[in-house]
């Protein structure tokens, strides 16, 4: 009696093992929906699909603001031979549906090391008309991320605009929330379940070829729009603007690999 039960239990264990071995190889579905793209898709694919699907209008600018953990410089590239260097926090308008290469330099913690992250804009915000520059997508880089990139790792962040009814009110503070997910999970799907994915940021340790011009490293780039605004306009002068800033919350880094 005991012996037969042990055999049956062992065989059932084998059966369960056979059943789960295949599933472990797949990205699990999120909310029962299909997400053909993930964070390891070739760079630019998500932006290209967004344009092809008509989700974004080609040629529309989306202001972005790159924030560093300390003083530094941010260089945007219209093309490989047309850099535009700005002091951090640097704000510029980039075309939605494209991918830009950036250079981050002048960080005290990383003397002599330049970083070349890329920003892939797959969606845009819809602020009040005429106030687009007041609501940029904020890309915040941390010291930890620069350390990973300097060590030769690939840091991938998916920024999304969170959906208010899916975020607990207790979490509504001023800082961005960064959630690190497992490599086997789809960061784009996770971001989509919490809101609207806006951009994919990738950063590693590769640098352009020092021996010869390396246009392909920078990609085709694209037009960059820089609006110089008076300093007063940046300050929240009225409580109405403060309400906007509190309510909008900004995109939040969702996934990071």
């Amino acid at each position: 009696m005991v012996k037969i039960s042990s055999i049956i239990a062992g065989l059932l264990a084998v059966l369960l093992t056979c059943g789960t071995s295949v599933l472990a190889q797949q990205y699990p579905a999120v909310d029962g929906r299909q997400f053909p793209l993930n964070q390891m898709s070739p760079p630019g694919t998500a932006a290209q699909w967004a344009v092809n699907a008509g989700r974004v209008t080609p040629g529309s600018f989306q202001p972005v603001k790159v924030t560093l953990p300390a003083e530094g410089k941010v260089t945007f590239y219209e093309s490989w031979d047309r850099p535009l260097e700005l002091a951090a926090p640097a704000q510029a308008g980039l075309l939605v549906g494209r991918m830009y290469r950036l250079k981050v330099s002048g960080l005290e913690e990383f003397s002599g090391i330049d970083f070349f992250p890329s920003i892939e804009l797959i969606d845009r915000l819809h602020p009040p008309a005429g106030r687009e520059e007041d609501f940029p997508i904020d890309f915040e880089f941390t010291i930890e991320e620069f350390e990973w990139a300097a060590a030769g790792r690939l840091v991938t962040k998916v920024l999304y605009l969170e959906q208010p009814d899916r975020v607990p009110q207790l979490l509504l503070d001023q800082t961005q929330r960064i959630t690190t997910i497992e490599p086997s999970r789809n960061a784009l799907a996770e971001a989509d379940s919490l809101g609207r994915p806006m951009a994919i940021v990738r950063m590693g340790g590769r640098t352009p070829d020092p021996h010869r011009p390396d246009p392909s490293f920078y990609g085709p780039g694209g037009p960059i729009r820089v609006v110089k605004r008076p300093t007063e306009a940046l300050k929240p002068a009225s409580h109405q603007q403060a309400d906007f800033s509190a309510g909008w919350r900004g995109p939040v880094a969702a996934g990071r690999r």
Binding site: P42, P43, G44, T45, A47, Q48, V51, N52, P58, G59, G97, R98, M99, R101, E120, S216, F217, Y218, G219, P220, G222
Partner: peptide
């Protein structure tokens, strides 16, 4: 076929 194999070959799609 989407550009691939050009390193950064998928750097976005111009209109």
């Amino acid at each position: 076929q989407m550009a691939m194999g050009g390193g950064p070959g998928m750097w976005g799609c111009p209109p």
